[in-house]
Structures are given as structure tokens and as C-alpha cells.
Design a protein around this nucleic acid. Structure first.
Length: 620
DNA sequence: TGGTTCAGCGCC
DNA sequence: AAAGGGCGCTGAACCA
């Protein structure tokens, strides 16, 4: 292997004379992980024969800049030309590198991508996917923890290794992907989707900081008021403290955030009966307890306190820390964050924005706004998981319900509880549909719980808890469900057999979920949780790939309509968020909806709903 | 001081 | 004995 550290334009040009410009691995070294602050420090390359690190800026182990390459600007110009000729780019966590390149205007749109981190996640959805982890496992590289003293002198070598290892991993992974039937998923779904991830990482979402600040104060006041009211209710002494910054605090011996203190308060001091226990056997003060005692004046306050305190600490207070200098948050969407193939999201986690609660009408979604001249458009799959369940199982009853445009939950309720709703009134467009939906809201909600519970592998015990009925009665519900939908039962059994036989299941896109067998007396067996997970994976995992396909297609489609100014800004499982220039919002929305609905070919219609507004609350 | 685990709870 | 899938984030409690 020809290995070199390159500083000058001459050295660099010489290196690329003998370099395979069409297919290579590369890795960027940067100064910061915050998008607005990212600066290129250097780039390493490898084509299998040649391996180099181009130094644009040097730093010591403490991050101090040692020197700047005086040719940085012209080198980056030169590299634009190199990448322009590239056909396949190989990287580890390539979304990160592409993000950096986007910032420097280095082209990659024309390239096919190969990400060794994503490939590894497809090969094993549970292990760590760090480059060093993989180099150790697959390349037998000894990873020595470097000390600060040797860091600087070894830095260039480490940097070169990143591109080298990435290249070598790629070579090793390809046959493994092939063997396990993962190539199609990798090439046709995951890799094109990486560009969508880059879009989201670059675009970010604008936050209305004033609103966040204003609402933070409001919620803070609520938390304080409720704390005082609770203390007065239990006649606990307290005092008010005003800090130098003008904030006020309630000082007391009781901490309402402590589960231990709370359980002492409720079950000893107030004499309530314990309704649930934690896995470790402690009396629990959770949702269920609160629901049962919701009429109790103290618990009523506690309920509101919990909601307000959650909003304050898990959403409003941390939010401003995530806002970058340009007024945007850039949540980190991780493509390898879950075992099912869903994305995970953090900093901030848009997947868990509290919905408006009737006991606490605070709307977190109003904090995320469309940029000037743009509208926010969201597009979500309607009833995605049940439609996927239908496609997977090919259950005729479900197929008929969806094909005829009936409301699934009301149809289920009608069958289950013998509601006697005339069949034609189950169609969502029927005049009497809304009336029946309203009249049998309870039954429909129960049916909804059953429909989703089935997909998650819920048992008789779970349903008995949901509905406050005996396990025997709950078992009857289960039996009835499976009797009415035999193909669902069959599909679940086949899935479980697959686990028993091979230890893994494969979704419709070829994604795998593997399970570890336990051994007892020489017998291999899987815990019940593995069976629940396996069938749920078929639904959840496919749904995740379905939105990957849809978002990738929207991205491709939008290239034909540059006037829209379409920007992909986020996704939440079955939903995607876009910015569209105001004048084109209707035209674009229609095309997005169409693209989502035609993303996959099902035996039933796929329906997507559009929302349009100036902020995420309006567009939802 | 920092790390981990647990309980709890937000979302799809 | 456990008892519905998948996450991330918080504070409390505990440990070194």
C-alpha cells in the first residue's frame, strides 16, 4: 500500500495521478460536530492501492490549531474536481462526510454511495458499528488507546487508517450482504436514503425562540403554582426563595420528582392503596395509579404537575441549547439507532414532542416554524402499520375493509361488539359514518387497542388490564380476533416458526432481525419476547423502509421542480416534514401525497394525508 | 465529580 | 415469572 501524508498542491496532484478516481473510500476530519461550526481539517483517501491524508489544518491533542495549510482554498477547489469525476463513494457514516462536503460545495449528488456503517447494521442490528469496533473485529487491527502525548505525532496515521479500514471493510462486507440477501435493501433503499439524511442534517428546522422563551416562563410558573398547591394540600411547610437572576424557587423537604418520596406520601401519609408495583417490587406511582385516583384532590394536582414538569424539563428548558447560531435545530437522525430499522432521533428528539394535553393546553409544535416565504408541509401514511399488517398477512377480511374504504377500527368494533351498524355506514365517506363513529367511540377505541395490541403480540393478561376484565374474557377476545382473521393467525405462526428454525426473520424488504437462543438441558429455545418482537418487526421494519422509499422518491421527484424550493426537514416514523415555497405549496403537496401513496405496491390502497401551515402545529 | 441503573413518561 | 413493539430524556439514587 502506497501511504502518504500530503501538504502541498504538487504532492496532492502527484498522488491523484495514480489514484482510481472513480471508486474510492474517504474520510473527513473536522473541528466540530455542530453543523454551523464544522471546519475541514483534512481528508483521507484510499482506492485499495493508494492511501493518503491531505492536511488542511493541524491541531494538537487539546484541539489547539497548530497551523493552517496556506493552500487550503486551492486544495479544496482541486478536490471538487476529484469528487466530480467520482462514481462510487465509500465512507463510514458517510452522511457525516457528505454533510461536511455540502458545506464546502464539494459535489456528490451524481455518486452512488457505500456506507460501511449502514452495511454493518444490516449485518448485525445489535452490535456497535464504530469504525474502530469493526476494524478490530474484521481486520484484526489492534486498537491502542492513544495518550495525549502520542496523539499529535500519530494523528496523520490514524487519519489515513480511517480511509484504509473503510475500504477494507467494504471489501469484506460485500459478500456477506450478498449471502444474506441484503444487497437490494442496501443498494436500492438504504444508500439512496442517505442523501435524504444529508438533506435533513443540512436543512435543520427553524425554532421560534421568542415563543420558546415565553412558554418556558409560563410553564415554569405552572410548575411552581402546582408545587405550592400540593404542599398546602398536604400541610407541608415551605418557603419561597428568590435567586439573584429573579427566578423564584419553592423550598420544602418534599421532592415531588422522587418516586420514593411520592410513594411514601401517597401510600403512607395519604393512606391510598397501592395499585401497581415496579419490576423491583416497589410501590409505583405511575400513570395507572394516577388514573385510578384522578378524582382525589391531591392526585389531581400531581397529575397536572407531572405534565407541566415534563414539558418544562424534557422540552422547553433544553430546547434553546439545541438552537444553533442560525436559529435552527438540527436533530440527529440515526439510521442505525434501532434494531427494527426505524430511525432514532435525538438532540432534540422530534419523535417525542408532547401532544396538546387537555389538562395542560401547551402546544410544543408551534415552536417549529416555516422559514419566511415557505410553508411547512407534512405528509403521513394513514394507518400505516395496519395496512402493512394487511399486506404481510394477505388477510381477506382486512383486505376487504381497506379496499372498500371502510374505517378499520369501527369495522372491527362492529364485528366484535355486535354493534349492528349497517355495513354501508362503515365507509368513511358515508353520511352517517361520523355519527356512528361518535356514538360508538368507546367500542371503536377498544377495537383500536385490539388492532394495535395484536400487532405487538399482546396477550390475554395485557388486554385484561386494558379493559378491566378477567383474563378469561380477554382470552375470548383474542380467540375471536384470530377466528375472524385466520390469515393473521397463520402469518404470526409462520413468523414464529421461522424464528425457531433459523433464529431470524426477514421483512418484505429483506431486512433481518436476529434473536439469541437460550440453552437449557441441551435444548435451544427463545424467550416469549423474541416471538413478540419477531412479528412486530415484520410490520415496524417494513414500515420504516416504506417511508425511506417514499422520502427518497420525493427527493428524486423534486429535482424536476426546482422552483418549489423543496427542503426535507424531518421525519417521525410514518410522517415526513418539508418546506415548500409558498406559491407552489398546493402543487407540491399533491405531488408529495401521490409519491407517498405510490411508494410501494400493495394489495390495498396506501393513503397519505397532507398538512400545510406556518408551523408544525398548523401543518400537522 | 462522573458514571450507571432505575422509574417514569413523551412519541409512533 | 411475566404479562404489547420501538425509541430518548429526565431526575433520583447509588457507586467509585
Amino acid at each position: 500500500m502506497n501511504r502518504k501524508v500530503l501538504f502541498t498542491p504538487n504532492e496532492i496532484e502527484q498522488f491523484f495521478e495514480n489514484f482510481n478516481n472513480e471508486v474510492f473510500s474517504f474520510d473527513t476530519e473536522t473541528t466540530s460536530l455542530v453543523y454551523s461550526e464544522i471546519k475541514l481539517e483534512g481528508i483521507s483517501f484510499c482506492d485499495g492501492d493508494n492511501n493518503a491524508y491531505i492536511v488542511l489544518q493541524g491541531r494538537d491533542s487539546k484541539g489547539n490549531i497548530l497551523f493552517k495549510n496556506e493552500f487550503k482554498k486551492s486544495i479544496i477547489d482541486y478536490l471538487r474536481g476529484i469528487f466530480k469525476k467520482a462514481k462510487i463513494l465509500i465512507g463510514h457514516n458517510i452522511v457525516y462526510d457528505l454533510k461536511v462536503m455540502h458545506k464546502y460545495g464539494i459535489p456528490f449528488e451524481h455518486c452512488e454511495l457505500y456506507c460501511t456503517m449502514i452495511a454493518d447494521h444490516l449485518l448485525d442490528e445489535t452490535r456497535p458499528h464504530g469504525l474502530k469496533d469493526l476494524a478490530k473485529q474484521f481486520l484484526g487491527v489492534e486498537i491502542t488507546e492513544y495518550s495525549n502525548a502520542t496523539f499529535t505525532s500519530k494523528f496523520f496515521e490514524y487519519a489515513m487508517n480511517d480511509a484504509l479500514w473503510t475500504w477494507q471493510l467494504c471489501t469484506l462486507q460485500k459478500p456477506l450482504l450478498q449471502e444474506q440477501g441484503l444487497l437490494k435493501l442496501f443498494r436500492d433503499i438504504e444508500m439512496p436514503f442517505q442523501k435524504v439524511l444529508v438533506d435533513m442534517a443540512v436543512n435543520g428546522i427553524t425554532v421560534d425562540k421568542e415563543r420558546v422563551e415565553k412558554t418556558t416562563k409560563e410553564v415554569k410558573q405552572k410548575v411552581e403554582d402546582l408545587t405550592v398547591q400540593m404542599l398546602e394540600h398536604i400541610k407541608e411547610p415551605y418557603s419561597m426563595q428568590v435567586t439573584l437572576t429573579g427566578d423564584s424557587n419553592v423550598i420544602s423537604k418534599i421532592n415531588f420528582n422522587s418516586p420514593a418520596q411520592l410513594s411514601d406520601l401517597l401510600f403512607t401519609r395519604l393512606g391510598l392503596d397501592v395499585v401497581e408495583r415496579t419490576p423491583s417490587g416497589q410501590p409505583s406511582v405511575g400513570r395507572k395509579t394516577i388514573a385510578i385516583y384522578k378524582k382525589h384532590p391531591f392526585v389531581e394536582l400531581l397529575n397536572k404537575y407531572k405534565i407541566a414538569s415534563k414539558l418544562l424539563h424534557a422540552f422547553f428548558e433544553p430546547m434553546l441549547d439545541f438552537v444553533e447560531a442560525d436559529g435552527k435545530v438540527r436533530p440527529s437522525f440515526k439510521d442505525t439507532g434501532t434494531v427494527t430499522g426505524r430511525l432514532s432521533c435525538s438532540k432534540p428528539n422530534l419523535q417525542q414532542l408532547p401532544k396538546v394535553n387537555k389538562d395542560m393546553p401547551i402546544d410544543t409544535r408551534q415552536c417549529f416554524v416555516a422559514d419566511r416565504g415557505y410553508k411547512m408541509v407534512t405528509c403521513d401514511f394513514s394507518g400505516q402499520e395496519l395496512r402493512v399488517l394487511t399486506q404481510i398477512t394477505q388477510e381477506p377480511v382486512l383486505i376487504d375493509t381497506f379496499n372498500s374504504g371502510k374505517d378499520m377500527h369501527l369495522a372491527t368494533a362492529n364485528d366484535f361488539f355486535d354493534l349492528g351498524i349497517p355495513e354501508e355506514c362503515l365507509y368513511t365517506y358515508n353520511d352517517k359514518f361520523d355519527m356512528y363513529k361518535d356514538k360508538f367511540k368507546n367500542e371503536r377505541d377498544k377495537a383500536k387497542i385490539v388492532n394495535f395490541g395484536m400487532a405487538y403480540g399482546k396477550g390475554a393478561y395485557g388486554f385484561s388490564q386494558d379493559f378491566g376484565i378477567s383474563e378469561e374474557e380477554a382470552q375470548k377476545i383474542l380467540d375471536k380476533y384470530f377466528a375472524a382473521l385466520p390469515a393473521v393467525k397463520k402469518a404470526i405462526e409462520e413468523c414464529h416458526n421461522q424464528v425457531r428454525k433459523t433464529g431470524y426473520v426477514t421483512s418484505l424488504t429483506g431486512r433481518r432481525r436476529r434473536f439469541n437462543a437460550k440453552e437449557f438441558n441441551g435444548n435451544k429455545f427463545y424467550p416469549n419476547s423474541a416471538f413478540r418482537q419477531s412479528f412486530n418487526f415484520l410490520i415496524q421494519g417494513f414500515s420504516a423502509d416504506m417511508i425511506r422509499i417514499a422520502m427518497t422518491k420525493v427527493r428524486e421527484m423534486a429535482k424536476n421542480y426546482p422552483q418549489w424550493g423543496l427542503k426535507t426537514i424531518f421525519t417521525v416514523h410514518d410522517e415526513a416534514g418539508y418546506l415548500i415555497k409558498e406559491n407552489y405549496v398546493n402543487e407540491a403537496s399533491e405531488k408529495i401525497k401521490e409519491t407517498f401513496e405510490n411508494a410501494v405496491n400493495f394489495c390495498i390502497p396506501v393513503i397519505a394525508d397532507i398538512g400545510i401551515g406556518d408551523d408544525y402545529s398548523e401543518s400537522k
